[in-house]
């Protein structure tokens, strides 16, 4: 199946402090929440991966949305692109969330909200009850679209109460490692299954270089799994955190 695409930037806009939304027009045919694209950023050796935050299929073409936070050279390069510029990306990469018909809690910490917005849309379309909670460092960084937004504190504050109060049956999460680790622990403690979308620096983003592997306990065996191809979604309880 074709995975390399040349798209055109349909929109690029500053949506919060150091945060940008980019919409790409291409002939990508499908994408699922937590799948990602990896973009060639000028002459950088390593492509930069970004979660798909929305996907809209048209007759022949499609619109793929990503949200990105400025970090270094790669994201600065992207920020400076203009509407109409060509963009070279690989997609759709990795395995998305496994959507289940269960009352779901969606946790998006910081820019980790990106795949959650796409997931929320899908769950809504499928009439699956869900609640999206997101957390940002301050007012300026808020990305809209959540049912509840935590500002300043941790998105994990009082989350246990929320899970119980809302009878949550499944947790989806994306964000920094510390948050995902807390979600993992909580999911084990409450015996509520969770799906976590991880990040690792990537070189190939298609499973060949073995640069992005993490260790999991699956089928009673400790083995390496690549975040790019086997992930980025892994289940709570199986990750061996470094």
């Amino acid at each position: 199946m074709k995975k390399d695409y040349k798209g055109k930037i349909e929109l690029i806009e500053n949506i919060a402090l150091d945060t940008y939304k980019m919409v790409i027009l291409s002939d990508l045919r499908w994408a699922n929440p937590a799948q990602f694209i990896s973009i060639l950023c000028g002459n950088k050796t390593m492509r930069r991966p970004f979660s798909i935050s929305d996907f809209e299929k048209k007759e022949k073409e499609s619109l793929t949305t990503i949200l990105f936070k400025l970090k270094g050279e790669g994201t600065s390069y992207l920020k400076n692109l203009k509407k109409g510029d060509e963009i070279d990306f690989l997609a759709p990469l990795g395995n998305g969330f496994k959507i289940e018909n269960k009352k779901s809690l969606l946790i998006g910490a910081g820019i980790g909200i990106a795949p959650m917005l796409f997931l929320k849309k899908e769950l809504n379309e499928k009439n699956i009850e869900n609640f999206l909670i997101s957390g940002f460092k301050n007012e300026n960084e808020i990305i809209k679209g959540s049912d509840k937004t935590v500002i300043g504190g941790s998105v994990m504050d009082n989350i246990e109460e929320l899970i119980k109060e809302k009878n949550i049956e499944l947790i989806y999460a994306c964000g920094p490692k510390v948050v995902l680790k807390m979600v993992d622990e909580l999911s084990t403690k409450l015996n509520t299954p969770s799906q976590l979308a991880l990040e690792k620096v990537m070189a190939c983003s298609i499973g060949v270089c073995r640069g992005c592997v993490i260790k999991l306990i699956r089928n009673n065996k400790i083995q390496n799994y690549s975040v790019c191809k086997d992930g980025p979604v892994f289940f709570g309880g199986e990750i061996i955190w470094e």
Binding site: M46, A203, G211, C212, K215, N224
Partner: peptide, 19 residues
Amino acid sequence: LGNDGDRIFEVQGGMINRI
């Protein structure tokens, strides 16, 4: 299983790997 820890690092015009 290869090495633990960071395995790839981008540099100007290339990369360093310790797979």
